[in-house]
Amino acid sequence: MPSLQSLRRKISSVKNTQKITKAMKMVSAAKLKRAQDRILAARPYAHQLREVMGHLSERVNRASHPLLQRRDGNATELLVITSDRGLCGAFNANILRQAVVFLEEQSRQGKQVSVSLAGRKSIDFFRRRNWKIRQQWGGVFDRLSFEHALDIGQNIISQYQEGTFDHLYVVYNEFKSVMQQQVIIEKLLPIESVQEPGGREKPVEAGSYLYEPDENELLATLLPKHFEIQTYRVLLESAAAEQAARMTAMDGATRNAGELIKKVTLFYNKTRQAAITKELMDIVGGAEALK
């Protein structure tokens, strides 16, 4: 039977842990609010831009801009977006598992795969494995800004244009709600047209569409912009999802700690009472013997 002292220690240690998880929950709740506001504000722009791009990419000659051009090469790049910090439940594990499945699948098809990593957790994970790491960005989520998206976006675009890889996919956690994150794998390059659900107007033939300035100039400004905005959106989604995952995980941890405290306290009280009863019996027994 454990000693009373060790039980007391155990209780106070769990209480300390509970304080920490509770504080972390509060912190991530506050951060979540901010991250959620940012992603909700950024979504309309990103979606509208994607819609415009979709209309455009159906009509223009794909050869007219490198970001639209479909290439036959088999070099595939996967941009993996995880968090910088842990203690957020299965957030990173889900991403990394899907990423590995995707990479294995692609290399089985004879594709040459490499990864770009954003977030320290993916860097730690892939460092110990045999996939080729092309580029990594750690610590972007501490102070996420559009500059980070520009940095990542421009690096990827220039590598893509140099022909380092022919296809780019991204895997990230989408922020669905506070309780729900969804792992998404999306193709980013070359830019494909978006399939909208439900019926949609037929693509208009190239002739009836006006461009100002001319088509090529427009594409040259619109396409990189589109890519940067999409990168930004993906980073914001992941940041919000991370805080939501952490909040849920820490909420669970706080609750579990509470249950553990209850259980150990009950056991502690039982043990204490048993000890008292035993002592009483001893005294009564001793007094009886003296008679």
């Binding site: 455009l56 569409y209 006006l210 461009y211 100002e212």
Partner: peptide, 19 residues
């Protein structure tokens, strides 16, 4: 304000994309 001049749009305008 289009980059190549202001433009006005009424319903039924043809497809048009500009900076």
């Amino acid at each position: 304000p289009g980059s190549e001049g202001d433009f006005g749009v009424l319903p039924g305008h043809c497809h048009f994309l500009t900076t």
